[in-house]
Design a protein around this nucleic acid. Structure first.
Lengths: 342, 342
DNA sequence: CTGTTAGCGCGTTCAG
DNA sequence: CTGAACGCGCTAACAG
């Protein structure tokens, strides 16, 4: 790799002059700047990132931590983030947290290789976030709330979305609506449970603990829950699964046991993953505005990087997507999107 | 952030000693190492990444460039890469190429912020790869072949997979099998076309240019192609779309025009994306071993980083997945996976 | 065993 | 307008 020194030598100037010609807009004669620029492009010169970062004490890079880079779900989020980062001329890099000692977040966060981060990954411990966040490294959390300076929060209205979809079930006259949770430590799952409870209360229904099931956000756990439900004496009229994967698993479990959805039991999910509209019956669910979420996260992150204090949390509205898996009347149609605004 | 100097001062030793105590396993008295370690953890010390990279001339990080972080498709690839990278104690960061001048690959590749890269992203220009690849930065290409030193190639057997799925259609007695290509500059699409042609030739069928359609890998383009097909006087008996998204679009287009798949026209795709098994009719397609592909790519990359020359290309076998969209006989079943080994 | 020192490549003073 | 010199934080070689 060609270094600044090489460029300076080729251009016949000193290293300091070369630097000025390349980075600053004043203080260099036009003719010498031209010489330097020529030399640089001739040598295919690019400043060494590590050296520049070390000197300037910034990296112009932000990190996005995702639990699993799966799904158009996250893809949209990243698009939202990256479009904003492009505006600000920041690079965006994504990563999953590994397992071992030498995890990626160690490298990126602790060793100061980025200027800010956006986290949607439960495997990144609170402790790591607490000990690295600060004025020189603000962090936007999408999956939890931490009451720590420079920790920002941006999320969809999980509680409201859950309320709405539960209410939708109750409005059809159901009384026995089950809830399937995600992992106990999932903030999102807990918020969705709250929304579920609020709807129930509003309809004057007591929470029945026999109708609360526990999964872990995987399709597999949904199947297991379905099996558990079927072994009870009475089937719920409807099930609200805290995410779509579990809803899929439940539908699949019903299929195996010849339980018809939605006729014998309605199933609704949360997230609106791609397959939700393709399965049979198409899944009623709650869509999060992923692109906007990413954009809002990035925008707030840059405000923090620029030194803004007191950036309030952002909560974006969700959208109820009605499909066949909860439809008792007027079936037919393609099972495609029928959005209902919040 | 605490620096090594701070640690040294607190521990009452020199900066060099502190460094040795932290990084090397010999040459430091146990008691002083202990003091240093204590001071370090007290100060929450972490070496500055930029400084270390600058000094050691390496980053212990590899980059993965993806066109779109969408889909469990890529997710598996990244898992494969990361699992190997973890073994080698390297960090993995993923990125999409942006549009502007200051793209992420500029930063990562040109400014030397990584020790190697894996590319599956047509938006990264050949030229950038050619000008950055070298002994200090080997690159594994998954979506093209570049005959340049330190450019490695790892891929699924696109040609063989295409051959196999085309052959599958021909074996049912079809003679008029259409091909829908991806973008003209897609290496993968071209290989798949080759496989298609080979199968045709083997069955003694002349290539009919009226049966070659051009798409761009999007579902939308599949729909357009379907419309074009329908406006011809004679429908093909079967269609091989160069990827699943386009196959989905074609099926969707047929649906709108009341053409039944597979009864009136069979449709097959390539990739085995998640929805392929969920749509109706479930899509016959070719599965690439994404996880293994990622693992092989990473493994070869590390061989190159370690200085191995002459690493041959790796071509991994694909798997034909028979589902309902190409089944004329013995329908029924769940439409779930029926793998047939290559 | 420990402290001192010389860069890694760059950006930025400060004299000339 | 230009060039020499310093230091960002760290590692490694060398003295003591």
């Amino acid at each position: 790799m060609a270094t600044l020194k090489d460029v300076a030598k080729l251009a016949g100037v000193s290293i300091g002059t070369a630097s000025s010609a390349l980075n600053r807009y004043a203080g260099v004669k036009d003719s010498t700047r031209k010489k330097v620029l020529e030399a640089a492009s001739l040598l295919n010169y690019r400043p060494n990132g590590a050296a520049r970062d070390l000197k300037t004490q910034k990296t112009d890079t932000i990190a996005v931590f995702l639990h699993d880079l799966a799904g158009p779900f996250y893809s949209e989020l990243i698009r939202g983030i990256q479009d904003v980062a492009d505006e600000y001329e920041y690079a965006t890099i994504a990563s999953r947290g590994g397992k071992g000692r030498n995890t990626t977040w160690t490298r990126l966060l602790l060793e100061g290789r980025v200027d800010g981060a956006i986290v949607l990954d439960p495997t990144v411990p609170d402790e790591v976030i607490r000990s690295t966040v600060g004025p020189t490294l603000p962090i936007v959390l999408l999956d939890r709330i931490l009451d720590t300076p420079y920790c920002l929060y941006v999320a969809a209205d999980h509680e409201g979305g859950a309320y709405q979809v539960t209410r939708h079930l109750l409005e059809t006259g159901m009384r026995r609506v089950a809830f399937v949770s995600g992992p106990a430590d999932s903030h999102d799952s807990n918020l969705r449970f709250k929304g579920y409870q609020r709807a129930l209360k509003e309809f004057g229904i007591e929470t029945d603990h026999g109708l609360i099931f526990h999964g872990d956000f995987t399709e597999r756990s949904g199947e297991l829950v379905a099996r558990a439900m079927l072994s009870c004496n009475e089937l719920p009229e409807g099930v609200f699964a805290a995410n779509d994967e579990m809803a899929l698993g439940i539908i699949h479990g019903c299929e195996s046991s010849e339980i018809r959805v939605p006729d014998q039991m309605a199933v609704v999910g949360f997230d609106d993953i791609t397959v939700a509209s393709y399965i049979n019956p198409a899944l009623t669910t709650v869509r999060q505005p992923m692109y906007e979420l990413g954009g809002a996260a990035a925008r707030n992150l840059f405000r923090a990087i620029r030194g803004d204090k007191d950036i309030p949390p952002v909560i974006l509205p969700t959208q109820l997507i009605l499909r066949d898996s909860s439809r008792f009347y007027a079936r037919g149609g393609e099972g495609h999107n029928l959005p209902v605004n919040v």
